[in-house]
């Protein structure tokens, strides 16, 4: 059957996450192409208040129950499975995020459908839907044909425009019956990031270091540049995982989303998970020894070179300039 396209609305602690609008925009185009309605499915506790934001959908399906405050992937999958079957859907769009991670694979198994993740673009050719995903840290793209236009697609955040998913109209809401189940007892609490000395989301200039910085002692090179330029030091994940900088300095999917006036990427390859946190910076300047590093695909200025040769000279020049 091919009677609808469903978007699983992503929200966290009472707010819609931007990726939802990206998915609605993509979903609308696909639904129009297949000539079927676009349905937005919202699962959670007190989520009926989110429905006015989902006007681009032809209708909103609501599973609102206090037992649904936290929905681990196995539970979400169970609920979506019912709706997918009931609505005779063909394509289900999910967010490729840490919140929704797991729902796709579990559903793929249960519904015997393909799951294609990390999707960045799509196109139709002779009525077939082709999806492009990013692999290998963003260095390679892969194209897949969705057989019979049926399957589950994980949309990578930041790949599609948000505006295309917004609408002033209000969509009709259909309240679905929440099946009987025992609420998930496993959830204990949220842990907020400890606020450190510096809030990298508020800095105008970030000197960001990646694995190319090699060791903890070398962080000082970045600290000196940050001081000379009037900014703060941030980092990619490996630097934080190694314990060289605190979690509050991490930029990316699991870390902070930053939008400084200037983002200096030093020894950062620019993996999709990193780009997610910084691609909207006003000016991006990257220094990397690898000319094929994906960071150059989004940088405004690039230097193919060794950060250890360039950064100290740059710091010196900035110091002199200040006098």
């Amino acid at each position: 059957m091919n009677n609808s396209v469903i978007v699983l609305v992503e929200h966290l602690r009472g707010n819609i996450v931007d990726i939802t609008y990206e998915m609605l925009g993509v979903g609308k185009k696909i639904a129009q192409h297949l000539n079927v309605p676009l349905l937005a499915l919202v699962i959670g506790k007190d989520v009926s208040k989110l429905t006015p934001n989902l006007g681009l959908a032809d209708s909103v399906l609501l599973l609102d129950d206090e037992k649904l405050e936290i929905t681990p992937p196995q539970l979400t999958a169970k609920l979506v499975e019912n709706v997918y079957k009931q609505k005779q859907a063909s394509i289900l769009l999910l967010a490729c995020t840490n919140i929704t991670a797991g729902v796709g694979p579990i559903l793929a198994r249960r519904l015997d459908l393909p799951f294609i993740n990390f999707c960045k673009t799509f196109r139709f050719e002779n009525g077939d839907l082709f999806l492009t995903s990013q692999l290998y840290g963003g260095k390679i793209l892969s194209e897949v044909k969705l057989i019979d236009n049926k399957g589950i697609v994980g949309i990578y955040p930041g790949s599609f425009p948000l505006d295309a998913g917004k609408s002033d109209r209000t969509a009709p809401v259909e309240e679905l019956e929440v099946p009987d189940f025992v609420p998930e007892p496993s959830f204990k609490k949220y842990i907020e990031p400890e606020l450190g000395d510096i809030d990298i989301t508020k800095e105008n200039i970030l000197v960001s270091v990646g694995r190319g910085i090699q060791n903890k002692d070398n962080i000082e090179i970045a600290e000196e540049l940050a001081e000379a330029i009037g900014g703060a030091v941030s980092a990619s994940r490996p630097v934080v995982d190694q314990g060289w900088l605190p979690l509050t300095r991490q930029v990316g999917k699991s870390g902070m989303i930053v939008k400084p006036k200037l983002y200096l990427a030093l020894g950062i390859s620019g993996a999709p998970e990193h780009q997610e946190g910084m691609k909207n910076s006003e000016t991006i300047l990257a220094i990397n020894t690898d000319p094929k590093a994906p960071i150059f695909n989004i940088a405004h200025y690039g230097v193919v070179g060794d950060l250890f040769e360039i950064v100290p000279i740059l710091t010196e020049k900035l110091k002199q300039r200040k006098g």
Partner: peptide, 10 residues
């Protein structure tokens, strides 16, 4: 999750 937010589960 995101933004440095984590969840604890048993």
């Amino acid at each position: 999750f995101s933004g440095g937010l984590r969840g604890e589960f048993e």
